Simulated scan of single mutants.
Amino acid sequence: MTTFCPEELERLPGFHIRRLQQIAVAVFMEETQDFGITPVQFAAISAVLRQPGMDQRSLARFIGFDTSTIGSVIDRLEARGLIVRNTSPTDKRVRLLTVTASGTDLLREAQPAVLRAQERMLDPLPVEQRELFMQMITRVNRENQSRTLAPSLSREPA
Protein backbone atom coordinates (compact mmCIF):
# COMPACT_ATOMS: atom_id res chain seq x y z
CA MET A 1 0.00 0.00 0.00
CA THR A 2 1.27 3.43 -0.95
CA THR A 3 1.42 6.12 1.71
CA PHE A 4 -0.50 9.28 0.89
CA CYS A 5 1.41 12.55 0.98
CA PRO A 6 -0.58 15.81 1.07
CA GLU A 7 1.73 17.17 -1.62
CA GLU A 8 0.25 14.60 -4.00
CA LEU A 9 -3.35 15.78 -3.67
CA GLU A 10 -3.49 16.66 -7.36
CA ARG A 11 -2.77 13.01 -8.23
CA LEU A 12 -6.05 11.87 -6.66
CA PRO A 13 -9.01 11.44 -9.05
CA GLY A 14 -11.47 12.52 -6.36
CA PHE A 15 -9.74 15.87 -6.07
CA HIS A 16 -10.11 16.52 -9.79
CA ILE A 17 -13.70 15.22 -9.91
CA ARG A 18 -14.69 17.57 -7.07
CA ARG A 19 -12.95 20.49 -8.80
CA LEU A 20 -14.62 19.62 -12.11
CA GLN A 21 -18.02 19.65 -10.41
CA GLN A 22 -17.27 23.10 -8.96
CA ILE A 23 -16.23 24.33 -12.41
CA ALA A 24 -19.33 22.82 -14.03
CA VAL A 25 -21.63 24.60 -11.56
CA ALA A 26 -19.77 27.91 -11.96
CA VAL A 27 -19.94 27.77 -15.77
CA PHE A 28 -23.62 26.74 -15.68
CA MET A 29 -24.46 29.62 -13.33
CA GLU A 30 -22.57 32.14 -15.50
CA GLU A 31 -24.37 31.08 -18.65
CA THR A 32 -27.83 30.83 -17.07
CA GLN A 33 -27.69 33.83 -14.71
CA ASP A 34 -30.48 35.60 -16.60
CA PHE A 35 -32.82 32.69 -15.83
CA GLY A 36 -32.10 32.33 -12.11
CA ILE A 37 -31.91 28.55 -12.23
CA THR A 38 -29.45 26.11 -10.69
CA PRO A 39 -28.19 22.89 -12.30
CA VAL A 40 -30.34 20.81 -9.93
CA GLN A 41 -33.43 22.89 -10.66
CA PHE A 42 -32.81 22.58 -14.39
CA ALA A 43 -32.42 18.80 -14.04
CA ALA A 44 -35.60 18.58 -11.95
CA ILE A 45 -37.74 20.54 -14.40
CA SER A 46 -36.29 18.59 -17.34
CA ALA A 47 -36.98 15.24 -15.66
CA VAL A 48 -40.55 16.13 -14.72
CA LEU A 49 -41.21 17.45 -18.21
CA ARG A 50 -39.91 14.14 -19.56
CA GLN A 51 -42.06 12.10 -17.13
CA PRO A 52 -45.04 14.20 -16.02
CA GLY A 53 -46.71 12.98 -12.85
CA MET A 54 -43.62 11.51 -11.19
CA ASP A 55 -43.43 11.84 -7.42
CA GLN A 56 -40.66 13.63 -5.52
CA ARG A 57 -38.87 10.45 -4.43
CA SER A 58 -38.78 9.17 -8.02
CA LEU A 59 -37.53 12.56 -9.19
CA ALA A 60 -34.71 12.49 -6.64
CA ARG A 61 -33.65 9.02 -7.78
CA PHE A 62 -33.97 9.94 -11.45
CA ILE A 63 -31.61 12.91 -11.20
CA GLY A 64 -29.34 11.37 -8.54
CA PHE A 65 -30.25 13.85 -5.82
CA ASP A 66 -30.73 13.37 -2.10
CA THR A 67 -34.35 12.46 -1.30
CA SER A 68 -34.26 14.39 1.97
CA THR A 69 -33.52 17.72 0.25
CA ILE A 70 -35.39 17.40 -3.05
CA GLY A 71 -38.46 18.86 -1.32
CA SER A 72 -36.74 22.22 -0.84
CA VAL A 73 -35.78 22.26 -4.53
CA ILE A 74 -39.42 21.59 -5.47
CA ASP A 75 -40.56 24.24 -2.95
CA ARG A 76 -38.49 26.88 -4.76
CA LEU A 77 -39.65 25.77 -8.21
CA GLU A 78 -43.27 25.74 -7.06
CA ALA A 79 -42.92 29.21 -5.50
CA ARG A 80 -41.71 30.49 -8.88
CA GLY A 81 -44.66 28.87 -10.64
CA LEU A 82 -42.48 26.44 -12.62
CA ILE A 83 -43.76 23.17 -11.14
CA VAL A 84 -46.98 22.21 -9.39
CA ARG A 85 -47.62 19.44 -6.89
CA ASN A 86 -50.86 17.49 -7.17
CA THR A 87 -52.19 14.89 -4.76
CA SER A 88 -52.01 11.35 -6.10
CA PRO A 89 -55.45 9.86 -6.71
CA THR A 90 -54.25 6.53 -5.27
CA ASP A 91 -52.24 7.76 -2.26
CA LYS A 92 -53.07 11.07 -0.57
CA ARG A 93 -49.57 11.22 1.00
CA VAL A 94 -47.85 11.33 -2.40
CA ARG A 95 -47.48 14.52 -4.42
CA LEU A 96 -47.21 14.16 -8.19
CA LEU A 97 -45.23 16.77 -10.10
CA THR A 98 -46.11 18.60 -13.28
CA VAL A 99 -44.22 21.33 -15.12
CA THR A 100 -46.24 24.49 -15.72
CA ALA A 101 -46.33 26.44 -18.97
CA SER A 102 -43.91 28.90 -17.33
CA GLY A 103 -41.56 26.03 -16.49
CA THR A 104 -41.68 24.76 -20.06
CA ASP A 105 -41.01 28.27 -21.36
CA LEU A 106 -38.06 28.69 -18.99
CA LEU A 107 -36.50 25.42 -20.16
CA ARG A 108 -36.94 26.38 -23.81
CA GLU A 109 -35.49 29.86 -23.27
CA ALA A 110 -32.60 28.64 -21.09
CA GLN A 111 -31.63 25.75 -23.37
CA PRO A 112 -29.16 27.72 -25.54
CA ALA A 113 -27.40 28.98 -22.40
CA VAL A 114 -27.27 25.47 -20.92
CA LEU A 115 -25.83 24.09 -24.16
CA ARG A 116 -23.22 26.89 -24.21
CA ALA A 117 -22.25 25.91 -20.67
CA GLN A 118 -21.78 22.30 -21.73
CA GLU A 119 -19.57 23.36 -24.62
CA ARG A 120 -17.52 25.65 -22.37
CA MET A 121 -16.92 22.80 -19.94
CA LEU A 122 -15.40 20.72 -22.72
CA ASP A 123 -13.53 23.58 -24.42
CA PRO A 124 -10.13 22.58 -22.96
CA LEU A 125 -10.36 19.22 -24.77
CA PRO A 126 -9.64 18.79 -28.46
CA VAL A 127 -12.89 18.13 -30.34
CA GLU A 128 -11.76 14.59 -31.22
CA GLN A 129 -11.33 13.69 -27.51
CA ARG A 130 -14.67 14.98 -26.20
CA GLU A 131 -16.70 11.88 -27.06
CA LEU A 132 -14.09 9.63 -25.41
CA PHE A 133 -14.13 11.82 -22.29
CA MET A 134 -17.93 11.59 -22.15
CA GLN A 135 -17.81 7.80 -22.55
CA MET A 136 -15.24 7.51 -19.77
CA ILE A 137 -16.98 9.80 -17.28
CA THR A 138 -20.32 8.11 -18.00
CA ARG A 139 -18.76 4.72 -17.32
CA VAL A 140 -17.17 5.86 -14.06
CA ASN A 141 -20.54 7.25 -12.93
CA ARG A 142 -22.52 4.19 -14.01
CA GLU A 143 -20.11 1.69 -12.45
CA ASN A 144 -20.12 3.57 -9.15
CA GLN A 145 -23.91 4.06 -8.83
CA SER A 146 -24.20 1.64 -5.93
CA ARG A 147 -21.71 3.61 -3.86
CA THR A 148 -23.74 6.82 -3.63
CA LEU A 149 -26.42 7.81 -1.15
CA ALA A 150 -28.37 9.31 -4.07
CA PRO A 151 -28.33 6.69 -6.83
CA SER A 152 -29.73 7.80 -10.15
CA LEU A 153 -32.32 5.91 -12.16
CA SER A 154 -31.64 7.91 -15.30
CA ARG A 155 -30.78 5.94 -18.38
CA GLU A 156 -27.16 6.55 -19.26
CA PRO A 157 -25.72 5.34 -22.54
CA ALA A 158 -23.67 2.14 -22.31
Rank of each mutant, 00 (worst) to 15 (best):
residue 98 T to C: 01
residue 3 T to D: 14
residue 92 K to F: 11
residue 50 R to A: 14
residue 60 A to V: 10
residue 122 L to S: 05
residue 129 Q to C: 12
residue 82 L to V: 05
residue 121 M to A: 08
residue 27 V to W: 02
residue 99 V to L: 06
residue 21 Q to M: 13
residue 12 L to W: 14
residue 130 R to M: 08
residue 42 F to V: 00
residue 13 P to D: 08
residue 1 M to Q: 06
residue 94 V to C: 10
residue 35 F to H: 13
residue 145 Q to S: 06
residue 145 Q to D: 02
residue 75 D to M: 00
residue 73 V to W: 06
residue 25 V to K: 11
residue 83 I to M: 08
residue 95 R to Y: 02
residue 116 R to T: 10
residue 122 L to A: 14
residue 28 F to V: 06
residue 57 R to T: 05
residue 126 P to G: 15
residue 157 P to S: 07
residue 60 A to S: 07
residue 48 V to T: 08
residue 130 R to L: 05
residue 88 S to R: 10
residue 15 F to W: 09
residue 154 S to L: 07
residue 157 P to I: 14
residue 23 I to M: 15
residue 150 A to N: 12
residue 50 R to E: 08
residue 44 A to T: 02
residue 155 R to W: 05
residue 82 L to E: 04
residue 112 P to Y: 00
residue 32 T to N: 15
residue 60 A to H: 07
residue 58 S to V: 09
residue 144 N to L: 04
residue 64 G to A: 07
residue 12 L to Y: 13
residue 29 M to T: 10
residue 104 T to P: 06
residue 91 D to K: 09
residue 151 P to I: 01
residue 46 S to F: 03
residue 55 D to M: 00
residue 15 F to D: 11
residue 41 Q to I: 02
residue 45 I to F: 04
residue 40 V to C: 03
residue 12 L to D: 15
residue 152 S to Y: 00
residue 85 R to N: 14
residue 109 E to K: 12
residue 120 R to K: 15
residue 151 P to F: 11
residue 80 R to H: 10
residue 14 G to Q: 09
residue 83 I to N: 04
residue 132 L to N: 01
residue 94 V to A: 04
residue 58 S to F: 07
residue 145 Q to G: 07
residue 151 P to K: 11
residue 140 V to H: 05
residue 82 L to S: 14
residue 13 P to C: 04
residue 17 I to Q: 07
residue 51 Q to F: 03
residue 117 A to Q: 08
residue 74 I to P: 01
residue 97 L to N: 00
residue 2 T to I: 11
residue 70 I to C: 02
residue 156 E to R: 08
residue 43 A to P: 09
residue 91 D to H: 01
residue 114 V to Y: 15
residue 9 L to W: 10
residue 83 I to D: 03
residue 46 S to D: 04
residue 56 Q to F: 05
residue 43 A to Q: 12
residue 81 G to Q: 07
residue 25 V to S: 00
residue 51 Q to M: 05
residue 91 D to L: 02
residue 126 P to E: 14
residue 68 S to R: 06
residue 129 Q to R: 12
residue 8 E to I: 02
residue 52 P to D: 01
residue 17 I to H: 12
residue 152 S to D: 00
residue 15 F to A: 15
residue 55 D to N: 14
residue 53 G to D: 01
residue 44 A to F: 09
residue 140 V to L: 03
residue 32 T to P: 09
residue 67 T to G: 10
residue 77 L to C: 00
residue 60 A to Q: 10
residue 129 Q to P: 02
residue 7 E to R: 06
residue 138 T to H: 00
residue 30 E to P: 04
residue 25 V to C: 04
residue 26 A to T: 12
residue 46 S to E: 03
residue 48 V to L: 08
residue 71 G to A: 05
residue 92 K to H: 05
residue 49 L to E: 02
residue 63 I to Y: 03
residue 110 A to Y: 09
residue 144 N to A: 12
residue 147 R to G: 08
residue 154 S to E: 14
residue 72 S to R: 07
residue 42 F to D: 10
residue 25 V to A: 11
residue 155 R to P: 12
residue 90 T to F: 15
residue 147 R to A: 04
residue 52 P to W: 00
residue 88 S to C: 13
residue 31 E to A: 11
residue 132 L to K: 06
residue 40 V to M: 04
